[in-house]
């Protein structure tokens, strides 16, 4: 029986890696994947905490997050494709028209 703390630590590490990738990479697709990483980290915490608390609601919440993530991926990738067709680039640093 692995202590729930290890699961949490693993989730924290995954989240941190995702966040760092999100902030350091410039390819929109890779950034997107980093977001997925972070979402998975959160899902893991929900499952683990749910088990530790003897509660199924954690798994139900993960179920919803999966749905939302799927919807987000669909729209996000469509946006990336649209931008690419117009600008022929996937680098977010070249998309800074909205600067102040």
């Amino acid at each position: 029986m692995v202590d729930v703390g290890w699961y949490m630590a693993l989730a924290a590490a995954l989240f941190l890696i995702g966040a760092l990738g999100m902030l350091l990479r410039r390819n929109a697709l890779v950034m997107f994947m980093c977001i997925e990483l972070m979402l998975n980290a959160v899902n893991l915490t929900l499952i683990s905490a749910g088990r530790a608390l003897n509660d199924l609601d954690g798994q139900v919440a993960v179920f919803f997050i999966l749905v939302v993530a799927a919807a987000e991926v669909v729209v996000g990738l469509a946006i990336i494709v649209a931008i690419f067709r117009r600008r022929a680039t996937a680098s977010v640093d070249e998309l800074s028209e909205l600067r102040g």
Binding site: L23, D93, L95
Partner: peptide, 18 residues
């Protein structure tokens, strides 16, 4: 004065967010 905060770089916003 406050406008430079909006750099237009998504990752900048990300840092602030984080």
């Amino acid at each position: 004065w406050i406008r430079p905060l909006q750099t237009g770089f998504v990752r900048n916003y990300g840092v602030l967010f984080l």
